[in-house]
Amino acid sequence: MTDAVRVEELVVTYGPVAAVDRVSFQVREAEHLTLLGPSGCGKTTTLRAVAGLERPSGGRIAIGGASVFDGARRIDVPPEARGLSMVFQSYAIWPHMSVAENVAFPFRARGVANSVARPAVARALALVDLAAYADRSATMLSGGQQQRVALARAIAFGTRLVLFDEPLSNLDAQLRLQMREELADLRRRLGFAAIYVTHDQDEAFSLSDRIVLMRGGRIEQQGTPSDLHAAPRTRFAAAFLGVRNIIDADIAHGHATLANGLLLPVRDDGPPGPAAIAFRPGAVVLGRGTPATIERVLFAGDQLQLLLRAGPVDVIAYARPQSGLEEGTTIMWHVAAGDCRVLRE
């Protein structure tokens, strides 16, 4: 089976700066791949290079088996001939067209007959619950509705590949959760392949089949959401994916020695030496183990967030809101060996 998208050794430079530096990945048919990373990591540039909106300086891009960019073979297919669609961060709804005209644009631009376009447009608008808005001016819609128009425009033509550039980042928190579910549902029903750019790890975890984590123009790590969640390979990956405790330690014989002399058991068969251990606040078990002082208690809604201090080592842990813990008191804590990762990079 051919891949929906195959990106090999992609390089995009702005002057002397490489915004994307030898990035390779594949997207299989009907797969949702997320490019995740902080701003400036090259994820949007990569996406725009796939769309043909950014011109790479090297590498290869193939869509559905057909080469659309190849630096060595001097192939560069313009965006309009790549046969994909895209949802933009700003929605990019044309204000001089009605909702239906916006959605019908991909048909008109490609010279498709009205008799074919009209039912497809109606179907797409129905899928995003905007059937009643077809003749409205696009500028009269709310942000969420404009987002739906952008979505309808991207799925109406039925391209096998849809690109998403931080599509939910301009919506408020509640709408964002709702659209996330609708998006996942829509993709399952229509079965297109998606490349999705976001800086929000929750969004990436909940929507993706596979995640490519980027940093400084390069791929830091890629894998399924559960792989990445359970086993970040580097300090950066761990920190970006919400592992709040990353502590320098000496690793030897299944134990990590922290700066305060504390020994923690770890499951690790790598070479001994200096490294770091990483564990999520939720993995910290309170009530037994070694002592630490509660430096600060922050009320965070569903839970209390504690800053524990044991000598030079700070640890963040969670506790139930009713637990009655107070700043300045001492508490016992430990982490199970299975919850503690050793990071050597």
Partner: peptide
């Protein structure tokens, strides 16, 4: 004019001239 208004037309299958005529010109 937000450049994504033009990008959206390009990925929708419109060439440069078509985009200039149908999106940039009216706006």
């Amino acid at each position: 004019l937000h450049p994504e208004l033009e990008d959206a037309a390009r990925v929708s299958g419109a060439g440069l001239l078509h985009t200039l005529r149908r999106v940039v010109w009216p706006l």
